[in-house]
Amino acid sequence: MSAHAHNPAVLHHFADAEQQKESATLGMWLFLATEVLLFAGLFLVYTLFRWKVPYVWVKESYLLGITLGGINTAVLICSSLTMALGVHAAQEGKKKALIGWLLATMLLGATFLGVKAIEYHEHWEHHKVPGLNFTYTVPYDNAHPYKVPEQQVFHFLYFCMTGIHGLHMVAGLSILTVIAIMAYRDKFSTTYYTPVEMAGLYWHFVDIVWVFLFPLLYLTGNHYTGGH
């Protein structure tokens, strides 16, 4: 009871800071396991359709273009580095460095979202938004225009996957904002920086999702040259 009276960061129902930190870490990883399964559903749909209609997948993926997606991948990897450095700074109790790295991470995250917005706008221009303004790609190989419904499914999945990933990014940015404010108000110390670490785990996880989304969505059609 009295052992932790000195440390205001330890909540009343925990015996000590160690227990609190371990609980938080385990809880966070359980939450991430949930997230894995959430995305697993989308990946399953993706894989199944790719297996069923590979030609649609290749040709529709080709339409996405890899430049912006590639830039975004690099941006996210950089943001993961800055986040890791931020946690490192927190561990060493360097407040200024921590805030700096957090801001850098947020800046990179915002860049990612900005690029994503440009991409979404392009898809809108190209009439590739399912349900709103979708136009089927006309001939693949021949002069007979026809509808292949799976074309729309590809873009639908694209929007679902990147959209849900984007929502996670937005959530991540909000969390980092809170963490940065807490850091500014000296809430953390070398013995208590669990929230920074948890935010880091979350951020890296969102990065990992993108590590899979990028090859699956963008690179699938990269070898496609337009011929049969």
């Binding site: 890296h204 990065d207 990992i208």
Partner: peptide
């Protein structure tokens, strides 16, 4: 083999992130 190749690289990347960054 397109999918396995792309996925293996992604898995390596994800593993690196998890092992060290996380």
């Amino acid at each position: 083999m397109n999918l396995p190749v792309a996925l293996s690289i992604a898995i390596v990347k994800a593993t690196l992130i998890m092992l060290f960054f996380m």
